[in-house]
Simulated scan of single mutants.
Amino acid sequence: MVIDGLDVSDDGTGPVDHIALLLVAAAGGDQQSFARLYDAMSSRVFGLILRVLVDRSQSEEVLQEVFLEVWQSAGRFAPNRGQGRSWILTIAHRRAVDRVRASQASTERDRRAGARELAAVSEGVAEGVELRMEARRVTDALKLLPQPQREAVVLSYYGGYSQSEIAAMVGAPLGTVKSRMRDGLSRLRDQLGVTA
């Protein structure tokens, strides 16, 4: 028998490439030949893929992809350029390596994304701790102020009251409240080591 200019008949001079015959027939749309090709090659192709990927479920997926590609591209197989078995195994190896590379790239992307998230969380935690420590320092410094100064500062900064409202609330003249706030803030700056 001659296929694409290549004599593949069994004339006693060499083995017949049955896989090549099945590929050529499958290229012509012969589904039975493709089924026989699958039966003849699937276990060997799966073994190759499994050796590359190690993961059985991914290997099964790649096996399907390989035979889909074989069905779709069987017309590109040239029997005079190599054996059918080698052509199919080359496709399988290429697909398996592509899957490994894609998996590694995905893992690397996930690792980088995880590192960014961890850095953001760590930064947020560090910022939160720093704010709590600073708030604690301010609270401790406020406790050291004389009561009238502490009251004026707390009502202004934590209560949101204006100096006039504070004066009315504590029953002190506006000038006195202004002095208490100015003196209280000055002492706070000194205790916290803040320069004006």
Rank of each mutant, 00 (worst) to 15 (best):
G128M: 04
I49L: 12
E60L: 08
A74T: 03
Q83E: 05
R81T: 10
L50C: 12
I91M: 11
W71N: 04
F67R: 10
S73E: 14
A102G: 14
A105T: 07
G124I: 05
Q83P: 05
S106T: 09
F46M: 10
P79T: 01
S122C: 01
L144I: 13
G82W: 02
F77E: 04
L118V: 10
D55I: 08
Q83C: 08
T139Q: 10
G84E: 11
P148H: 06
A126C: 08
H93Q: 14
L63D: 05
E69K: 14
Q104M: 07
D55W: 00
E60S: 12
G124Y: 01
V52S: 03
D140L: 15
N80D: 13
A135I: 03
A78C: 05
V54R: 12
E151G: 07
E65R: 05
V129H: 07
V54Q: 06
G124R: 13
D110K: 06
R136P: 00
P148L: 08
A120P: 00
E108L: 13
E117H: 05
W71R: 14
Q64Y: 01
V125N: 02
H93S: 12
A126F: 06
R116Y: 02
V66C: 11
I88P: 12
I49W: 06
L50H: 13
R136Y: 01
G114A: 15
S86Y: 01
S73Q: 12
G84W: 07
I91N: 09
I49Q: 12
R56N: 04
E117S: 13
W71M: 10
L63G: 09
A78D: 10
G114M: 06
L142I: 01
R51I: 00
L89K: 09
L144G: 14
P148Y: 01
S86E: 07
